[in-house]
Structure formats: C-alpha cells, structure tokens
C-alpha cells in the first residue's frame, strides 16, 4: 500500500518539482548538466519586461477582484442569511451558476454582453469576469460563517442600544473577519491562475498565465520555469496561510 501510494504520488507530482529543478539546471540531450546550476533565469526575469508586466496585471486584477467579490459576497450572504424571501434560493442559484458552468460559457456570454453594451475589453472587464466567477466561493465561505453565529448575538447588540451600523461594526464584523480574509485569499489565488474567462475578456493587455501560455508556444525559456517556480511558491504560501488561519480559528472556537 505504502509503496503504491508513493509511486502514484511520485507520478502525479514529480513534474511540478521538475519544473523547479529545471529552473536552476540546464539539460543537454536529455541529460542534466550538474555543473550548470545558476540563478540566471531569475535575474533575467527581472529584465523580462513583458512577463513582469503581465504579473503586475494579474496582481492588479486579483486585488480588485478580491475587494469586489468580498464586498458583494458579504452583502449577498448577509441578505441570504437574514432574508425570509423565497427568492433567496434563486439568488444562490444565480451566484453558483458561473462557477458550475464551463468557463468557456461564462467567458463567452460576458464577451457577447460587453460587446452589446459597447464596453471595451480591458483589465476591468477581466475583473468583472473574475468577480462573477469567484463570487460563489466567497459567498459560500461567508455564509457558512454567518450561519454559525447565534441570531441572539446581533439581537443583544441592538438590545444594548446599538444602531444597525454599530452592531455591524462592533459585533458582526469582528466575528466574521477571519472568514472574510480566507475568502479574499482564495479569491486571489483563483483569480491569479484563471485563464479561460480571461482569454475572452482581455483586450490588449495580458495577464501572467496568458503571457506564459503565449511564450510556451514559441518555445521554452528558463524564465518561464523561473516564473512558474515563483508563483508556485507564492501560491503555496497563500494556501498555507489560509490553512493556518483556518486551524487557528478552529482552535479559538473550541470552548
């Protein structure tokens, strides 16, 4: 069992680590040149303006997507949690739809829509696409947290004289803060490597995954390896951060 598991893990995940490996070493005729270790691809990457620029675009899209999706996601989740309207199930269905549909459909529909309303394609249309895509996850994470809070919590804030805003600010927000951070980090990670919807909605700019894809078509370069490694590290860091936040908050909850 252990050996089989080990083999499957190796088969599945070796390519990822090879990428890191090849960013440091050169190969010649399928053989690794052990003397070729260098940081050169990384230093070169700094001068590779296009890749850096696309990375900055991706970060811009990611950050704005996080802000939009967390604000809208909280608003919807809070509405869903407190409303007695039967329409709220429909709202949830709509929110989940773009996440469940093939991204091509989502991307294409948005493209047609933007064209209809004469909105030129840009990084901002990408932000809209990403927000619609990640909203389902953000909504669900925040809603789950809201549902663990006792209804009496807000009621007691009102009872002690708080206005709606004060109850939100002093009681609700501090208690859902962690879930907002987790939702935001996830939204950022998803936005960072989203390609399909982006392809439809991007104009003359380019995001990082699309740039890499374009670069691969004209042959590999060490810089691609290097930037993949960097993103791998960044994403792993984000995932670990999310995991540690979750485990810390769980510990806090156990009475």
């Amino acid at each position: 069992m252990a050996i089989l598991t080990g083999l499957i893990v190796a088969a599945l995940y070796t390519p990822i680590f090879l990428t890191i490996f090849y960013s440091f070493y050169k190969t010649r005729k399928g053989k690794v040149d052990w003397t070729s270790f260098s940081y050169e691809p990384y230093t070169k990457l700094i001068f590779e303006k296009q890749i850096l620029e696309s990375l900055m675009n991706s970060i811009y899209v990611g950050v704005v997507t996080v802000i939009c999706s967390v604000v809208i996601g909280f608003y919807f989740a809070n509405y869903y949690h407190t409303s007695k309207s039967k329409m709220k199930e429909f709202l949830q269905f709509i929110i989940f739809l773009p996440f469940l549909l093939p991204p091509i459909i989502t991307g294409l529909s948005l493209l047609i829509f933007f064209r209809e309303i004469n909105l030129p394609r840009s990084l901002n249309t990408v932000v809209i696409g990403h927000t619609i895509f990640v909203l389902a996850i953000v909504f669900k994470i925040i809603l789950n947290k809201l549902e663990t809070l006792k209804p009496s919590l807000m009621e007691s804030a009102y009872d002690l004289g708080a206005s709606k805003f004060q109850a939100f600010w002093y009681v609700l927000l501090p208690n859902i803060k962690l879930s907002l951070i987790i939702a935001g980090l996830l939204a950022f990670t998803i936005s960072l490597d989203e390609t399909l919807i982006t392809l439809f909605l991007i104009g003359n700019d380019t995001t990082w995954p699309i740039k890499l894809w374009a670069k691969m078509r004209v042959g590999f370069s060490k810089q691609v390896n290097a930037s993949v490694t960097l993103i791998l590290i960044l994403t792993s860091f984000l995932v670990l951060l999310i995991a540690s936040i979750i485990s810390r908050s769980e510990k806090k909850i156990t009475y």
Binding site: S152, E155, S156, V171, P174
Partner: peptide
C-alpha cells in the same frame, strides 16, 4: 425601536460577544 426601549434582555444562550473580553462585553451598552 429596540435600542430606544428602557429594557434589557438576558438571552437563553447568553449571547456574549465572543470577540470581546468580560469587561468589554459588560461595558458595551
């Protein structure tokens, strides 16, 4: 409205604010 009434409630599940310590909970009002 609730916040203008001169009554206060002790809830069945206490409804203490988990993000505040005892004195901040008590001093909230």
């Amino acid at each position: 409205p609730i916040f203008k009434r001169p009554f206060n409630t002790v809830f069945q599940d206490y409804a203490l604010f988990p993000n505040m310590n005892v004195s901040n909970n008590v001093g909230f009002g």
